[in-house]
Structures are given as C-alpha cells and as structure tokens.
Design a protein around this nucleic acid. Structure first.
Lengths: 175, 175
DNA sequence: CCCCAATCCTTTAAGCTTCAAACGTCTCGA
DNA sequence: TCGAGACGTTTGAAGCTTAAAGGATTGGGG
C-alpha cells in the first residue's frame, strides 16, 4: 500500500487530491489520516526510487544498514525486527540477502545460542555512509517547505497522534 | 517497510523511541520524517490487522473497494492505479482476486477496448459498507488525542509538507 | 488515409511482507 | 534436575509490490 505508477510515466496525481474533490465530506479524522498517509507515501516512494536508481539498493536493505550503523556491536534479529517494525519472519530472508551482498555479517550469539547477531562489515559501513548522506539530503529537500517553528509544532502534534495510535496498536498485542 | 512483529507477542517498542535515545543527534528533518513514518506505520499496521481479524480482508483489497465505492460508474484500472498510488501491474492481479471474491466485476470499456472498467457488485457494496464503518471508528480512535484546533493545524502543516514532497516526487516522473 | 507515438493492460522476475506453525534453546520454579 | 513455558529464529503459503518488457488499441499529424 505504497506506490508510484511511475513505470509508465503517468501524471500521478495523488489519492487525496481526488478525494478532496469528491462530494462526500468524510469525517475530518479520515481526511487527516489520508493526508498523513499521502505524505508518508510520497516521501517513501521517492526515497525508494532514488535509492534504487543511484545505489541499486532497496529501502528495507537501507533501513537494515541504518539500524546496524547505529549499533556498532551488532543487533539480534529480534532487536532489528522491533526497531524496523517488521515481522521477524521477514528479517531472516532480508538479512540473508544483505549478508550475500557483503554489507553485513551474521553469527550466533556467544551468550545465547538461539540468537543471531548481525553486524556491519567494513565494506557495509563505507557503502552505507554514502547512501546515508544522500538520504539525508533527500529528506531535507522534501521537508523544505516548513519553517523551523512549523517543524517544531509538527513534531509535537505528531507526538500526540503517535501516542493515540500506539495505544490502539498495543492494545492488540496484549490481547 | 511497514510492520508489526505481533505474531510472536513481543513488546513492540517503536523505532523512534530507540532512536531518540541514541547519542547521535540526527538532523531535525530526519527526526520529523521518522516520526511521521512511525505514525503512519502504527496506524496502517493496526488497520491491516483488524481488517484481517474482523473481516478476513487485506488493506489493498479494502482500498480498492473504497475507491470504487466513491465511483458508482466504475473506474478503469489506470484510474485506480493513480488513485491508490500503486503501479498498474499491481492492479491486474489485485482486481482479479477481488473479482473472484465476488465483490467487484470487470469488463472491457465500451468506448476503449484497451481499458478495463471495474465496478462494485451489490454484494461488494454491502460488504464494503460494514468494513468502512469499522474502519472509520478505528481511525477516529487512533486520532483521538487531538483537539479540533490541533487537527486543523496538523492538516495545514501536512499540506505544506505534501507540497514539498510532491515536487520532489514529480520531479522524477517528468525526467 | 496511414503511421507512429501515446495509452492501457498484462506478464514476468525478483523482492518484500505477513501470519502461522514448528523447532531449538533458555530460564525459572517445583 | 526436570519440566513447562517463554523466547529467538526459521520455514512455508499466500499475497503485495515494483520495474521492465511486450501486446493491443487509440488518436492525431502528415
């Protein structure tokens, strides 16, 4: 549920634009969610495309490297799955592919034979640094329209939203 | 790049929480993006889970029904791909699955033999209405922490962000 | 009228993602 | 110390997603 329709060079309006034109006035919360989602999709799709075009990498792979770059001692697959907010079944294969690429290495934990610890290789660290610099530029570019005080406001409002969403999200995990 | 790690009942902190603890002070734009992404993921994952648990549907399928519910005359696959912001190659298979379920029907356009027009069936409309009601409740629940004036502010700030992101996004499509 | 570029869709290969079930390992209390 | 339950990972099935290439159709300019 993300996307582009770029492959065929279509003009690519976004979902929300059309919705705003629609006669039905959806509840304000729906419109808010739709707008948030649109922002997220727009940014994410752009990053994904550029990552592929300029570095031949995918977003999940980049995300994996980014997490490991912040944890020099390495992380277990479980840690990674929590930080990346993906299922752990997902990581097995993802890690495997990135190991093959040579960016990371994986070994059984010394203290817990159940756990697999992944760590950046030197090559991985170097490769990541280049990508991270570009990634940061892209993000800044796409957030460029906001004044500093607006960014601050946005951070706070999103923090509130995040709290509500988290409650709903975790209400299920417990059950 | 979305997710849950619910299947194994882990505590599920989110990426950002950990990041905030990290020593490195990332640029404010990165933190803003990360927070937006976290909100989006949290909401999306919750919706996805509930849709599956309560209706046995997936989010893309729901999204498809939602688009068609707003267009009684039906939409071509191209229209759908633009509105849903997914590639058109994606829709072929998605539509096929939902046709099989009996929620929609697909036929060649009367005026353009290249185009396929998808439309809700009566059964599809009924099924969708139930889901939409629940969906709306969930969204309201997850946005609950915000006062009306905060929602308004958020709408405006996100509109600005969206404009920046759109520029970057479409800059590529043209190229 | 014809051709060619644009448009619409499908197909394919590769990768991502989830959920659920299964397996080995660990921990802790009886 | 032994067993039960928690935990970390893997596997398998199903579905989603993209990019890229190819086939059919259309519409407009020569």
């Amino acid at each position: 549920m993300i996307a582009s329709s770029i492959s065929n060079l279509t003009a690519t309006p976004d979902a929300e634009t059309r919705l705003d034109q629609a006669p039905a006035a959806d509840h304000p919360e729906l419109r808010l969610w739709l707008r948030l989602f649109t922002c997220s999709t727009l940014v994410e799709t752009t990053i994904r495309r550029r990552l592929r075009a300029e570095f031949g990498e995918t977003l999940p792979r980049f995300d994996l490297l980014a997490q490991l770059a912040k944890a020099p001692a390495g992380l277990t697959l479980s840690d990674l799955s929590k930080r990346m907010m993906v299922s752990n079944g997902n990581l097995t294969a993802l890690v495997e592919r990135v190991v093959e690429a040579g960016w990371i290495e994986r070994r059984t934990s010394a203290t817990d034979r159940r756990a697999q610890v992944a760590r950046l290789t030197a090559a991985g660290r170097t490769a990541f640094r280049k990508m991270a610099a570009a990634h940061e530029r892209w993000i800044v570019e796409m957030t460029g329209g906001l004044e500093p005080h607006e960014s601050e406001q946005l951070m706070e409002l999103l923090a509130k939203w995040k709290a509500s969403a988290r409650r709903a999200f975790e209400g299920e995990t417990a059950a």
